[in-house]
């Protein structure tokens, strides 16, 4: 039982990271129609931004985290200006291929700057653990779940209670009508990319202490985030959260109760089952016709 609780918390923690990556993916997809194949590398950049500020620059962690997220925000803006804007007049496939190219570039840029040797990114609550009914639970895992919960609440407020968030939903539903309402559409699209990059940054900073900071970590995260959006419902924010947690849990539970060699098979098997049986995912699209 104690083991089970421990596994659940660890699964939720890794699932939170997948969920944040998937949310960033969904925000960009619904606002711009672009399937961002660089989403996993965004998370990898987040981890390495942490390595740069926390390990290399030795900043105290509040400043290091702030600086890392600022770097990610700037990176999101740069991505918008240098990849999305020049390509947006072309077909959507062009932009998607562009994200693949950027993904490869990012991976190699990280390899050039940090080398292939993995880093260990420390956590501010390093080596602390709490005991919960006999289960030893790392404080970092709990912190990850808590931070994600706060982020999700913040996103809910953003999308439902602020004019920027409602404007982003409007742009996602009908760009032309959004222009006619006087919305500054380009600014909102830029904000979508920045928000996605910052969420990936948070995910990367939290993931670093659970995995190693490795320049090849982006692809597995992208695949898991992708599986999460399929399971939850493509384009749905609640779906990204539920899907992310589900993938995280199935991975951790599968690794310990079935076999660690098959942990990916389990989550991707579930994704394939969803594609066959319920392709719209758990939450589906609330709106059939996007107008």
């Amino acid at each position: 039982m104690a083991d089970f609780v421990q596994l659940i918390i660890n699964g939720l923690a890794i699932g939170s990271v997948y969920a944040l990556a998937a949310i960033g993916f969904v925000i960009v997809y619904s606002a711009t129609g672009v399937v961002n194949f660089a989403a996993g590398q965004f998370v990898m950049f987040g981890t390495f931004a942490g390595v740069a500020t926390l390990v290399n620059a030795q900043l105290p962690w509040p400043f290091a985290y702030g600086a890392a997220l600022l770097i990610m925000a700037l990176f999101g803006a740069l991505f918008f200006v240098s990849v999305y804007l020049p390509l947006r007049r072309g077909s959507i496939v062009t932009i998607i291929i562009g994200t693949v190219a950027v993904s490869i570039t990012m991976q190699n840029a990280a390899l050039l700057s940090f080398g292939s040797w993995p880093f260990r990114l420390p956590s501010p609550v390093e080596d602390s653990a709490v005991s919960l009914g006999g289960a030893i639970i790392s404080l970092h895992a709990l912190a990850v779940v808590a931070v994600t919960a706060v982020m999700v609440a913040g996103l809910w407020l953003l999308f439902n209670r602020t004019s920027v968030g409602v404007g982003m939903r409007a742009v996602a539903q009908d760009v032309q009508a959004a222009r006619l309402m006087g919305l500054k559409v380009n600014r909102l699209l830029a904000f979508s990319w920045i928000l996605a990059a910052v969420l990936a940054g948070v995910a990367g900073l939290m993931l670093g202490p659970m995995w190693f900071a490795d320049v090849n970590m982006g692809d597995p995260i992208a695949l898991k985030a992708f599986a999460a959006t399929i399971i939850g419902g493509f384009g749905s924010l609640p779906g990204a959260i539920v899907g992310g947690l589900f993938v995280g849990l199935s991975e951790v539970l599968g690794a310990s109760y079935v076999s660690s060699a098959y942990k990916d098979l389990i989550s991707f098997g579930i994704m394939i089952a969803f594609l066959l049986v319920r392709p719209q995912g758990v939450f589906g699209e609330k709106i059939q016709d996007r107008g």
Binding site: R169, A170, Q173, L180, G291
Partner: peptide
């Protein structure tokens, strides 16, 4: 034309 209401708002 076609009203273009935001369906999910």
């Amino acid at each position: 034309e076609g009203r273009r209401i935001f369906p999910g708002l």
